[in-house]
Nucleic acid binder design. Structure first.
Lengths: 153, 153
DNA sequence: CTATGATTTCAGTGCAGGTCGAAATCGATC
DNA sequence: GATCGATTTCGACCTGCACTGAAATCATAG
């Protein structure tokens, strides 16, 4: 079954909305959705601006963001003044990994707080519970990634 | 070694700043930090407003948020018109769990998109890669939690 | 070197969210 | 039921962010 444009557009919009709380602006999410399913798999900034009905400025800003996070690759070819942007599907794992690392980082804070309270074990009880949880979690993240099936090249 | 007030205040501020990108407003983070280490472990909204130098309105709003997410428990006692707020250290794990679930939910979107492209396997290649990653990840989350050491009561 | 088309920069606009503080509401005591 | 303190509600303000569109910049082609 071949999807209608309307269905795909609606899907892209849902994806973009889902990514907003993850820190990716709406237009950035639209770009990702589009690059995820467009054929062929490369587009110039101008094309994206046209097809997503977004200003060239926004597309430029968001492409820079996406390239920085590694989700999109920018390639230039001699003889073409326009750069081509292509989605790097394997980079989504890194995105998630960074998110987990950010959560695990809380451990540093709880551990530091515990040190400040080292003279008062009773008072440190609540913080100790939280610290133990983050200690466990931050230990799990690397293991989790180690057993991850290799992404396709 | 007993921490000075200044050190603890600084630590609370760092914690609050760390929680902002996680979706917890600054004052909410300050409340969490304070309730994490204060002695005794309960405070009224008025006390929090006083000690954190935040308006009563902000404290009210943020306490409601924290109670909703389960991080703080509100208890009332007959004979006391002021409600007491206490931190629930065990609830931090739920907070993280919800975060992981939100990430894992992306799978729903990738799977749905793949269905839309089911007539065009070539075009679905990138999306398939992403979907496979989220498929793996969303499967890992429940396992991870299952092996979690029991939190103290 | 000039022209053309693409990209980036940047000032301006709009919007959403956080905070404040005053007023209204609530709960308990007398 | 009146009072007193605590809490919530609500409008106002402020800040930061996303987006736009025009101008400046850049890269290639002629």
């Amino acid at each position: 079954m071949v999807a209608s444009y309307g269905q795909l557009n609606e899907w892209m919009e849902r994806l973009a909305a889902h990514l907003v709380p993850e820190g990716i602006p709406l237009i950035g999410g639209r770009i990702l959705g589009y690059l995820l399913v467009c054929e062929p798999d490369e587009r110039t900034a101008a094309e994206l601006s046209e097809e997503l009905e977004a200003s060239t400025g926004s597309v430029s800003t968001n492409l820079k963001l996406l390239v920085n996070t590694g989700l999109v690759q920018r390639t230039t070819r001699r003889g073409r003044q326009a750069a081509q942007y292509r989605l790097d599907a394997a980079a989504w794992a890194d995105l998630v990994r960074r998110r987990l690392d950010a959560i695990a980082e809380t451990r540093e804070l709880t551990a530091f707080g515990l040190r400040l309270l080292s003279g008062d074990p009773q008072r440190a009880l609540r913080l100790r519970t939280v610290d133990e949880f983050y200690g466990w979690f931050s230990g799990q993240v690397p293991d989790l990634w180690q057993h991850r099936p290799a992404p396709p090249r």
